[in-house]
């Protein structure tokens, strides 16, 4: 038995063997790595996160708009500031002469009643207690 590779006639191989046998061997395409399944789950999770963040953002927007529209002008009572009050003079009808204005004012000053008279501190009892039963 002679080994096929050790044939004495070295030309035989090129004659007998077809030049192109079967399908041509093209370089194999680089296989793309298959996306693992867990990546899809992540995508879904991200989408949910976006929805949640969007809803929270929307909620804050609603609250913000609501506050602006309804209580925007209100400030904590402790931080209230008073604009510089300008000395307001009781309006006097323009047709009054100076003498008449003086008379009107004299009447007001003579009959001046202190506002405090109508705002007496409420008379409430301060000694509400319950004695120990004997």
């Amino acid at each position: 038995m002679i080994n096929k590779n050790n044939l004495p006639n070295q030309t035989q191989f090129t004659i007998e063997d077809p030049i192109l046998s079967g399908r041509p061997h093209l370089p194999e395409e680089e296989k793309k790595p298959v996306e693992p399944e867990f990546k899809v789950v992540d995508l879904v999770k991200n989408r949910r996160k976006i929805i949640v963040v969007g809803v929270i953002g929307l909620a804050f927007l609603i609250i913000g708009v609501y506050l602006l529209l309804n209580v925007g002008g209100q400030q904590p009572a402790t931080k209230t500031t008073v604009p510089e009050p300008t000395p307001t003079i009781t309006p006097v009808p323009p047709d009054l002469s100076l003498r008449e204005q003086i008379d009107v004012l004299s009447g007001k000053v003579s009959q001046f009643e202190k506002p405090s008279r109508n705002l007496v501190f409420p008379p409430v009892q301060t000694n509400i207690r319950i004695a120990e039963p004997k």
């Binding site: 003079i89 001046f112 202190k114 506002p115 405090s116």
Partner: peptide
């Protein structure tokens, strides 16, 4: 109460000065 009384009379004082 004092501040209220004061401000009321003060208005009359300022009115007098204006006249």
């Amino acid at each position: 109460l004092f501040l209220l009384d004061y401000s009321s009379l003060n208005s009359l004082r300022l009115e007098t000065i204006k006249i």
